[in-house]
Simulated scan of single mutants.
Amino acid sequence: MMTDALVAHSSEIEQADFYKKTYLHVALSILAFIGVETVLLKVVPVELIAMMFGQKYTWLLIIGVFWLASVLANKWSLSQSRSTQYLGLGFYILLEAVIFLPILYIATGYSGGGTLIFQAAMLTIAMFAGLSLVAFTSKKDFSFLRNIIIIGGFISLGLIVAGAIFGFNLGLWFSVGMVVLASASILYETSKLKNVYTTGQYVGASLQLFASIMLLFWYILRILMSRRS
């Protein structure tokens, strides 16, 4: 078990080491996601992937399971036990790979689908880098975003469930709104690194950032796909 101090109460060297390890784990998480996703797209039957987005109640079940499992993964990631943190991060990467199966399968079916996915990934990385720079260099306190993110998250979840049940398309502006929400989440998660985590919780910190990046990637990809349809 670790008894590390908060990052804010640590020396500059310890803070720098924490940030280095956190962002290294974010990068490794993205690479792990790519690897797992590539394998799943090759081994999971097309019929099963089609069922995930073809049956509205199946998709609702998947969203529900994903939400519950995400809560568990987040809890593990904030443990003081390093092995439990890694368990939470690994579990969450697997969850993201499963939830991304339908949208990536559809995207690859577009003309130039590989380029489309690459463009979405590059835009996501560029936005994440820019938002992180703002959070680190700005003296602004972004803690006010917490309530906005929570309320926005519940509203968006309600709209997604309603759309799945009643069969209406949430449209381009919903995706734009979710990009804004994901961007706010990145700002908030980055700004709270120093005051929430201990120097030994870099794995848990990386999970929170990874989750925000994947949300941003999902809706940037949806926006680019909507332009092709």
Rank of each mutant, 00 (worst) to 15 (best):
K139L: 13
Q80V: 07
K140I: 14
T22H: 04
G113V: 10
L193A: 05
I125D: 05
K21G: 00
E14Y: 02
L170G: 06
L28I: 12
K139M: 10
A121Q: 05
N74W: 01
F174T: 07
G158Y: 06
L172I: 13
F118D: 06
F128V: 12
V46P: 02
W59Y: 14
F128A: 15
Y57V: 07
G167H: 10
A32F: 03
L187S: 07
V71W: 11
E47N: 15
Y23C: 01
L78R: 08
V180I: 15
E96W: 05
N74R: 06
S81P: 01
G171Y: 09
Q85D: 12
T58Y: 14
A211W: 01
Y188F: 15
I220S: 08
I62K: 05
M2T: 13
L94Q: 03
T22R: 02
Q80K: 13
S175T: 09
R222E: 14
A162H: 03
T199K: 02
M178H: 04
L48S: 10
I93A: 00
I160Y: 02
M122E: 12
A135I: 08
A16Y: 06
I49S: 09
V44D: 09
K139A: 11
G112H: 05
S70K: 04
A162M: 13
I49C: 05
G152E: 00
E47Q: 14
L157M: 14
L72W: 14
L68K: 07
I213L: 13
L157I: 13
S175L: 09
I63N: 13
L104A: 08
L24I: 12
K20C: 02
A164G: 09
E12A: 13
L157Y: 07
L48Q: 12
E12Y: 06
Y105K: 09
S183V: 10
L157P: 00
T190C: 04
G152V: 00
R228M: 11
F33D: 00
I106A: 12
A184E: 01
Y92E: 07
M2I: 08
G171W: 11
H9F: 09
L193I: 04
G54Y: 09
F53K: 11
L48A: 15
G171V: 12
F136R: 14
L104V: 13
I160W: 05
D17K: 12
M2C: 02
S191P: 03
I106L: 15
T38Q: 10
N169T: 07
M214V: 09
A211G: 01
S83P: 02
F174V: 05
L48D: 04
Y197Q: 03
Y105R: 11
A32Y: 00
L224Q: 13
E37H: 10
G177E: 08
V71C: 04
T190H: 11
I63C: 10
F100M: 12
S229K: 12
I125M: 14
W218G: 00
T198W: 01
F66D: 07
L209P: 00
